[in-house]
């Protein structure tokens, strides 16, 4: 385990493109996540929520502001960062190398960081995500969507990080499989004291997984609140109220009252 696992983002801005074509994807976003806390970023497509996550994962180099994980500056590209924060992607069909067996996928991060004892660690990781040793030498095309996502989670845990960045980890999965993956993430967080930053468009998933959440729209945070307040149906902002109503299922009257917040 490395670092305390806190996440801080201050005045984060991300622009894509240049000149008049530039898209201001993230505009001055600030939030912080305490060690061991589970924090949700919720928003619709284009709200910038995934971009924030990709900045923290070091996948996006072109941004302004400050972002630190366990006190380490994300912009520094510090070699310790991979061992502190890891990411799980949305689509388990795209996030596993099609020509690598599960074993190779899981052993790769160990090889990169010169960590020995790969065989035992791989088996332990498979066990931790609820897959037996029989899965170890399979290729991704021999796995179901849920099994693939378990492998992706195991891969994120190989370096024993303290922060898990989750980008819509269940939205490509069936309902019953989603429940299994959410339960797994819940258990891992409890057992390992992981800090989680979960991005989703699904308020119910955020409410289930997180302690606090921030609602994003058009690249900015609309409001930050405790999940308990969300449960009581007490959002302060009209945008959040609308999002909440729309998440509760179809209602002709609600549909008629929808306003655009662009």
């Amino acid at each position: 385990m490395s670092g305390d696992g806190s996440v801080t983002v201050r005045d984060l801005s991300v622009r894509f493109g240049r000149g008049s074509q530039a898209v201001h994807a993230v505009r001055g976003v600030s939030f912080s996540v305490a060690p061991g806390e589970s924090f949700g970023l919720v928003g619709e497509s284009g709200s910038g929520k995934s971009t924030v996550l990709r900045v923290l994962a070091g996948l996006n180099q072109d941004w302004q502001g400050t972002a630190t994980i366990s006190g380490l500056d994300v912009a520094s590209g510090d070699r310790r960062l991979p061992r502190i924060a890891q990411m799980v992607f949305q689509d388990p069909y795209a996030s596993l190398h099609p020509r690598h067996t599960v074993d190779r996928t899981l052993a790769e991060p160990l090889a990169i960081h010169g960590i020995g004892d790969a065989s035992r660690r791989v088996e332990q990781a498979l066990m931790a995500v609820g897959l037996g040793p029989g899965f170890r030498f399979r290729y991704p095309n021999q796995l179901s969507g849920g099994q693939r996502q378990r492998v992706a989670i195991a891969r994120a845990l190989m370096l024993e990080p303290s922060v898990l960045l989750l980008d819509e980890p269940t939205s490509a999965l069936d309902v019953s499989v989603q429940a299994e993956i959410l339960n797994l993430l819940h258990r891992l967080r409890r057992e390992r004291g992981l800090t989680m930053l979960l991005v989703s468009h699904n308020l119910a998933v955020i409410a289930h997984m997180c302690d606090r959440l921030a609602v994003m729209n058009r690249g900015a945070i609309v409001e930050e609140m405790a999940v308990a307040a969300l449960r009581r149906g007490e959002p302060r902002e009209a945008y959040t109220r609308q999002l909440l109503l729309a998440s509760l299922g179809y209602d002709r009257a609600v549909a008629a009252s929808m306003v655009s917040y662009d």
């Binding site: 999002l243 729309a246 998440s247 929808m258």
Partner: peptide
């Protein structure tokens, strides 16, 4: 998105 979804369903 959920809000657009509502409107299309309407």
């Amino acid at each position: 998105d959920v809000t657009v979804q509502m409107q299309v369903l309407a």
